[in-house]
Write a protein that binds this DNA or RNA. Structure first.
Lengths: 230, 230
DNA sequence: GCAAAAGTGTTCTTGGTACACCCATGG
DNA sequence: CCATGGGTGTACCAAGAACACTTTTGC
């Protein structure tokens, strides 16, 4: 059985970089400059190099596409896609990573891509190259579930944020509205989820909101669950 | 940047096959017959063949190791391990699968392994070849979390089972004891989790228990959560 | 009748939801 | 003083935990 018919193949990382911008869940896409699917939108990503770890490759690609230090933001492997025919260039197994970042002025033209841009996930759905539509869908579902059980929501926020900011992350990603008052309490009563900085932010109109930073916790205890019935 | 330093590598699938046997969570391990780590325990697995999908490879390996039809039981990809030095033979990226099966008389000597055996995960921990200890740990944690939100527990049970059987799956996998009476109600009131067959099983002593089979649902609504405080 | 396991009923507590209400600011 | 968003108090309801109690079998 130890016939030598193992596939020798290349491995790639693809990044689903999510943020909340202009009240919508958006993802960073590049316009492909090269042959397969040229001119079409695709997720940023690239081949893993010899001697390079998968996570390292993801951090490197993230830096190349966004100019940001991948080590400083949330980056998490979430699936592998390995259908033999998923890439017309030959067999490529792709490891998909979910990256979450605050709304920063980022998109720069990437190295092997002619451009990069934020697009709302609701708009882009159905028009990505390769099997990237499915990857994006899986990533979004993953992010939605992660909000329930982990402190992932803080990764969407800048260093200092209000509870209202945090709530709007949940509302935008889940696509449902939450009661601001109950949300406050839940978040404040969850140990190490957020901690007050002492500062306040004065909104254009209304009472100033206390500012918080992310607490030490990574898991949410108790969880903040979506309304599964509605 | 499109230098040709992409890694050309082999990809493997590794299987964490879990079952509940003799009141303990056990996993199927093989004794390695070949060079690296020869004579040591390892997870069953093997290289993906040319033109073969990842899931297909997992099903094939499962059949080779256990003689069972992989399509009929729970099989789920859960992580990728791709450190450049994780395999002394060269670069191998491994896709890890979690398989769940009822307690069946299974282990047959595998093809490229000199033997296979069930061992309790609590016993084997720390003695597996490659990075398989970590893979096993990740798999068990995954299974524990899956019990909370999905109907995975039924995959540990034979076609017909009692609520007591199902409860003992939770108790063994989670390592905590549950109230039989409250557990019954929770499970019965969860839509499509289990459905009665009408038959009963007479235990050596005690009142006969109604038999059930798995219902159609895959997600558990409401979830059955572990006691996170204790 | 006794042991053992299945299953029901009941109370208590906790956590979620809905919502009235008050607070702090800019205009 | 009004509009606007931040934040607290409270009443209600549903789900979970604990546990007394009944049922159904083999011996």
């Amino acid at each position: 059985m130890t016939t030598r018919d193992h596939a020798l193949l290349r491995i790639a990382v693809d990044l689903v970089i999510l943020t909340v911008r202009e009240g919508a869940l958006q993802t960073l896409v590049v316009i492909r400059g090269n042959k397969p699917f040229a001119g079409q939108f695709a997720l940023p990503g690239g081949f893993v190099r010899a001697g390079e770890g998968l996570d390292d490759a993801a951090v490197r690609e993230l830096a190349e596409e966004t100019g940001l230090d991948g080590g400083s933001l949330h980056l998490e492997q979430f699936a592998v896609y390995g259908e033999p025919d998923r890439d017309p260039r030959g067999r490529v197994v792709s490891v998909a990573y979910l990256a979450i970042m605050p709304d920063l002025p980022v998109p720069t033209a990437g190295s092997d891509a002619s451009g990069a841009a934020w697009v709302p996930v609701s708009k882009i759905h159905g028009s990505l190259a390769f099997d990237h539509d499915r990857i994006l869908t899986d990533a979004v579902e993953r992010a939605r579930r992660r909000l329930e059980l982990t402190t992932l929501a803080t990764a969407f926020c800048p260093a200092e944020f209000t509870i209202g900011d945090l709530r709007s992350v949940y509302e935008v990603v889940w696509g449902e509205s939450l009661d601001p008052r109950n949300f406050s309490r839940k978040v404040i009563n969850t140990e190490k989820f957020i901690e007050p900085t002492g500062a306040k932010r004065i909104p254009p109109t209304g009472r100033p909101a206390a500012l918080y930073r992310a607490g030490g916790a990574t898991t949410l205890n108790p969880p903040i669950m979506r309304n599964r019935s509605r």
